[in-house]
Amino acid sequence: MRVTDTVTYKDPAWHTRITWTVVFLAVLLPAGWLAEFNPAVLWDEANLRTVGHFLGTFLPPAHSLEFLNMVAIATWKTIAIATVGTVLAAIIGFPAALAANRALSLSALTTGRMAPWAAAVRWTVRAVLIFLRSVPEVVWALLIVRAVGLGDTAGVLAIALTYGGMLGKVYLEIFESTDVEATRSLLRNGAGRTQGFFYGMLPACLPELTSYTVYRWECAIRASVIMGFVGAGGLGQQMELSMRMLAGGEVITMLAVFVGLVWIADQVSLQLRKWTE
């Protein structure tokens, strides 16, 4: 700024700057229009009153014994949903990863190519896994709530399906990326596939498998709170109810509990992963 006091230099990059600004605006303006971008609604008088009232109820946080008791139960339910959901996901993911595993193919080992039907099975399993994880967990929860009703079951199933897809994929990657020579030499020397897997592949992969599953459990805790908003049980469902009644004090208490829960899950998962590796 000071430099321009004496000599005026021409900005050497002016036309790139102009081009980028124009391109930027050309994309930004329609996008803003599509997103109904209108900060004015935030200052609308009726809105301000509602928000002011809502914010006013935030303090003091709700702390009656009865309410805290309810929050404690909801929190434990959230943990239970995440845990059971993750275990079911592993039950889905593990066999799927085995079925889709190329390294355990006998035909590929002996002839260099996979038998066509075996290749077909492997591709089908992979496609199912991709489908399971490409639907977000909240959407699974929304659909399952329609099928089995409001409550914990929907949350457990939603986590089981989405995370089943993710665990299956990652388990598969772990199986195929570890050193397969031990397994292959077992298979070559006449071990069955079960033996090859349990004595060759599994011991090599176990720490990584456990570690990733624990990490997913941590994600599942966060996800199960969020899924509560569409009626899948736990802390989220209570939070949604309180928000709908504009009970700010209850919302703030539950948000604090949520943040604490996520932090604890984070620490537990970190410790467990350190321990397994």
Binding site: V41, L42, N47, T50, V51, F54, F229, M243, L246, F258
Partner: peptide, 12 residues
């Protein structure tokens, strides 16, 4: 998603 549920109160 929790932010969204809160903001919906303010911005409709």
């Amino acid at each position: 998603l929790v932010w969204a549920a809160l903001v919906v109160v303010a911005a409709g």
